[in-house]
Amino acid sequence: MTSHANSPAPNATGGTQTMSRSRATAIGFVAVLLWALLALFTVGTAPTPPLLLNAICFAIGGTLGVIWTGVTGGAGKLRAVPLKVYAFGTIGLFGYHALYFSALRLAPPAQAGLIAYLWPLLIVLFSGLLPGEKLRAGHFIGGIIGFAGAALIIQGGGSGFDASALPGYLLALGCALFWSGYSVLSRKLGDIPTEAVAVFCIATAVLSALLHLATETTQWPVGLWGWGSAIALGLGPVGLAFYVWDIGVKRGDIQLLGVSSYAAPLLSTLVLVGFGIAAPSWSLGLAALLITGGAGLAARASLKK
C-alpha cells in the first residue's frame, strides 16, 4: 500500500506542519476505540428510525467539524475540493450508517454488529485487487475463516436459523460491503483535506432528514438514555471518529491502522455483553474469534512484501 505519511501535512492556513507518523497513527487508532461503542449507543437510541438517527448524529458530527474548521481557519481549502468528492463522501457516510442503523433495528445487535464488522477483512481482500497490490494465500484463507464466523452467527450457533432476523443480517452484510468498497475506492481520489469531512457530515444530515420526512414516522429518542446515546453517537463514533481516522490513514501507518481496526468487532461485542445487551455464549465468542482471527491472518499477508 502507498502511504504519504512521511510528507509534510498541510495545515489549516495552507502552509505545512510536521506530524510524526507514530502520532498520526495513534490519532487514527482513536477511531477504532470509538467505533467499538457504535452498537451500544445505537441500541440506546431505539425506537428512533435509521434515517432520523442518521440526521441527528451527522448534524452533531458535522457541527463539530464546522467549528473546528472555523477555529483553525481551514474553510478556504474547502473551495478547492471537487464536487464529485463531496458527493462520494456523502454517499459513503450516508449509505453505511443507514444500513448499519437499520441492521441493528432488525437483528440482534451483537450478531448484526459482528457481521457489519467484516469490513476490515473485506478492505484487505478488495485492496489486493488494486494496481500494485497482490492477493496471497493468507487473504483467501482469512476470508474463509471470517465468513465462517459470519455464517455461525446467522445459523444461531447450531440453535437453528432465525428467519425473522434475516433482513437485519443481510443489511449488516451490505453494510460491510458498502464501507469496504467505499474505503478502497476512496484511495483513488487523492489527498483531500480533513476539513472536507465536515461537509460530508452536514450533507449526510440534510439528505437523511429529507428522506426521513418522506419515508419514516418520526420517533425521537426516549428519555435521558436515548438522547444521551444519540448525542454520544454524534460526538464520537459518528463524529470525531471520521476526523481522526482521516488524519491517521493519510499521515500515519495505514497498514498498522488496518490491523488495529480488526479489534473493533471483538471490542464491540465485549461492550454489549458487559452492558447486558448481549448474552455471552460459546457461539458468539467463537464467531468473534473467527472474524477477528481471519482478518488478522489476511492483514499479516498484506504486510508481507
Rank of each mutant, 00 (worst) to 15 (best):
Q155W: 09
C201K: 01
W227Y: 08
G228Y: 08
L240D: 05
F200D: 11
F200R: 03
P167R: 14
Y182E: 01
L170C: 13
A163T: 11
G158M: 13
T215V: 03
A163Q: 14
S180H: 07
G181Q: 08
T218K: 07
D162R: 08
A176S: 15
C175G: 07
I192F: 00
E216G: 02
F242G: 04
W225P: 01
A176H: 05
A241D: 02
A209N: 01
E216W: 03
G223H: 12
A196Q: 06
I231K: 02
G181Y: 08
P193I: 01
S159T: 14
G228H: 08
P193W: 01
V199M: 09
E216H: 04
G239A: 01
I192D: 00
Y169S: 03
F161V: 14
A205I: 12
C175L: 07
V206T: 05
L235I: 11
S183M: 11
W220Q: 05
S180Y: 06
S159Q: 15
W179S: 00
S164A: 15
S229K: 02
L207K: 00
S186I: 01
G228V: 12
H212K: 00
A209L: 12
G174H: 08
S159L: 10
G239H: 00
S186H: 07
G174Q: 09
G236T: 02
A198V: 09
F178M: 12
I153E: 06
